[in-house]
Amino acid sequence: MTAPPEPPIRLTSAVACSPDTDVAVLWHIAYHVPELRKWLVANPKADAPLLELVSQRGGPGVRQALEILFESMEA
């Protein structure tokens, strides 16, 4: 190894809603970080299966985030 490994990703709301975040990280958040699930709803890379998992697992603010998403789709 010629260089040290990169430090672990610090999971924040910015990471959860960034379109640059790897999909595997988004799934990790959906499974393991309930306080960041609402931010996944705002991520353009969040597909239907990921949003379904977020909906099923819930967490602080998830219902409200999904309601806003669905309302924006109706407009």
Rank of each mutant, 00 (worst) to 15 (best):
R10K: 14
T21E: 06
Q64K: 06
P5K: 03
S13F: 11
D20Y: 13
A65S: 02
P19V: 10
I68F: 07
R57K: 14
A16F: 02
C17D: 06
V41C: 12
L50H: 02
P7N: 08
R10W: 09
P7F: 10
V54S: 00
G61L: 01
Q56S: 04
V15G: 02
W27M: 04
R10T: 12
K45P: 07
E6T: 07
L50W: 01
D22N: 13
L51T: 12
L11H: 10
K38H: 15
A24C: 10
T2Y: 13
K45F: 12
G58Q: 01
R37P: 15
N43P: 15
S18V: 08
G61H: 01
D22S: 13
L50A: 05
P8I: 12
V25P: 05
P60D: 15
P19I: 11
D20I: 13
T21V: 11
P44L: 09
K38G: 06
A48Q: 11
D20E: 15
A24E: 11
L36S: 03
L69M: 09
R63K: 09
T2A: 13
S55G: 07
Q64L: 14
K38W: 13
T21R: 10
I9E: 05
L51A: 03
C17I: 02
E71W: 08
S13M: 03
M73D: 09
V25T: 14
E71M: 09
P4Q: 07
K38D: 10
A3P: 05
F70M: 04
L69W: 04
Q64A: 11
P60V: 02
E74Y: 08
A3E: 13
S55P: 01
W39R: 04
A3Y: 09
A3R: 06
A16T: 03
A16C: 06
A16K: 01
R37A: 11
P7V: 09
L51W: 00
S13K: 12
G58A: 03
L26W: 07
L51C: 03
A16I: 04
M73E: 08
Y31N: 14
L11R: 02
L40N: 02
A48T: 12
S18K: 10
A65P: 01
G58Y: 02
V62F: 02
I29P: 02
A24T: 12
R57D: 00
A75V: 07
H28A: 08
P5Q: 05
L69I: 01
C17T: 04
E35T: 12
A16W: 00
T21C: 08
E67M: 14
A14W: 07
R63G: 08
M1D: 15
E74D: 13
I29H: 00
R57L: 07
L69H: 03
V62H: 00
P8F: 04
V54W: 00
S18G: 11
E74V: 15
P5M: 05
H32S: 14
E67T: 08
K45M: 15
Q64G: 03
R63W: 08
